[in-house]
Structure formats: C-alpha cells, structure tokens
C-alpha cells in the first residue's frame, strides 16, 4: 500500500516540477505558479509546497494526513516569456481540478499545449517596429523621427532575434541590439533631419526595456514573495544597464552630448 502511494507521489511530483518550472520560465508571477500547482495536486488529494529561487525550485508533495511525502529539486528552464503558455496552463489546472484528469492525460495535454506554434518571426518584427514608432510619437517625436525609430527597431530587433537563436549571453545581446538600434538613427541626428532627432535617439532602444519581468517583480513583492520579486527586478535592471550602455556607446561614437 505505502509503496503504491509513494509511486503516485513521485510520478505527480515529476509532472508538477515540469509544470511549475515551465510556468516560471514563461514569465508567470510566483503566486500563480504556486496556486496552479496546488490545484492540480488537490485534484489527486495531495498537498504541494514549493520553494522558488531564480534558478531552481524545491517541491514537496505529500498526502493530506502527512504520512507520506516526496521532495525534489529541479532547475528552472530557459524559455521565452509567453502569456499564451500562462493562460493555457492555468486553464489546464482548472480542467484537472474539475474533471480529475489522470496523469497520462495531463502529460498528453501538457505536451499538446507546449507544441503550439509561436507567432511568425517576420510579423513579430513588423509589429514591434510599428509599436516602437508609435511609442516615439507618444514622446512627441515628429513623423521623420517615427519613421527613423521604426527602421532602427527593425534592425535592432532582427539582430536580437538572430543573436538569441545563437544562444549568446542575454546581456551581451541587449547591449549589441541597443547599439545597433541607436546607431541606425544617428543619420537623423548628424544630418539634423526633422525637428526632433533627439527624441528618435532616446526612444530607439525602448523596445528592449524588460517591462514584463519588472511588473512581475513588483507583483511578487506585494504578494509576499519578496525574494523572487527582488531577483526578477534585479535581472531586469541589469538588462536596462546593458541597453543604456549600448545607447551610450552610440552617443559617444557620434560625439554627441550625453544627455
């Protein structure tokens, strides 16, 4: 009997560690990861406790009477942020809770959801470029500045896509991408095109600002997951340092006045 329970706990722990690390890597705030995992464990009549760090999680799953438990440590994955994964896996936790899905069913659905195709790379590039151009307009840039930012973002973001595919260090990618984008708008500044070349220069790198981890960090902190929140915020801050270094190098190269 106890061997049976132990095997059950172990196989569910394997699923939940995969589930929780995927959610964490997809940019889901900590309390939701805990809540979703607990929901799935509850549908099997178990309790789960998760301790989360930036790189690993510790997960303990036990029977409600506390007689049996199983613990494991697993590494957090490296995945791009995905709100779709967040949404789908949250829905999966409710489905498991309401319909008492078996473990093989859970694995099958999990793999199906993870295999969903991402948005086309070129469409993504186009939308990001137009989005950043609109952002330039919000800061008071004129039409020429917006067109400049659109081109600069296209160049910088494409470089980011290519370099991330090579699994280059994130910080280095952020620096290079910011440098490329800022350098692409330098003609506007050097030739004094349009009325607002400085705004074009200042907004050209803003597509690199890691807004999602920053906001997730704040949410984590106010919900009591202070450590997780602070580590997210610091990671995001380092990326901002890298993008400002990229912009700074571009400014120094054209001999412009910094600020």
């Amino acid at each position: 009997m106890s061997q049976n329970v132990h095997d059950q706990l172990k196989s569910l722990a394997l699923f939940l560690s995969e589930y929780a690390t995927t959610l964490l890597a997809s940019g889901v705030h900590t309390s939701r990861v805990v809540r979703n995992s607990s929901r799935i464990a509850a549908s099997f009549g178990f309790q789960v406790f998760i301790t989360m760090f930036q790189r690993t999680i510790i997960l303990t799953i036990r029977t409600t009477d506390g007689d049996h438990s199983y613990s494991m440590v697993s590494a957090v994955k490296h995945l791009p942020i995905s709100f779709e994964v967040n949404s789908d896996l949250s829905a999966l936790s409710w489905e498991a809770y309401d319909n008492h899905l078996t473990l093989p069913e859970l694995w099958e659905k999990f793999h199906q959801l993870m295999a969903k195709p991402h948005i086309n790379q070129w469409l993504l590039l186009l939308l990001v470029s137009i989005g950043n151009a609109a952002f330039c307009r919000l800061f008071g840039g004129d039409l020429i500045a917006c067109v400049g930012v659109c081109c600069a973002t296209a160049i910088g973001f494409r470089l980011r896509q290519l370099l991330l595919k090579q699994h280059l260090n994130h910080y280095f990618v952020w620096f290079l991408s910011a440098l490329a984008a800022a350098l692409s708008v330098t003609p506007l500044v050097l030739l004094d095109w349009g009325a607002t070349p400085e705004i074009a220069m200042a907004t050209s790198v803003l597509y690199l600002v890691p807004g999602v981890p920053l906001i997730n960090g704040i949410i984590d902190i106010i919900e009591g997951h202070v450590l997780a929140g602070v580590s997210r915020t610091i990671n995001a801050l380092l990326l901002i340092v890298c993008l400002s270094l990229g912009l700074l190098c571009a400014l120094l190269l054209i001999g412009g006045n910094v600020l």
């Binding site: 709100f83 993504l124 807004g211």
Partner: peptide, 24 residues
C-alpha cells in the same frame, strides 16, 4: 484620442514579444 490610439499600437507592438494568446 491620439494619445490613446498610439498607446494602443505601442501596446500591441510590445506585447507580441511576449507571445500573448491571439484572442486577448
């Protein structure tokens, strides 16, 4: 109105990086 309009476009541009569900 222009402010709201351009903010919407910027939001679409920045959110697609994070692979949102289409319907949202």
């Amino acid at each position: 109105l222009a402010d709201g309009f351009f903010a919407a476009i910027a939001a679409i541009g920045f959110s697609v990086i994070s692979n949102p569900p289409r319907r949202s």
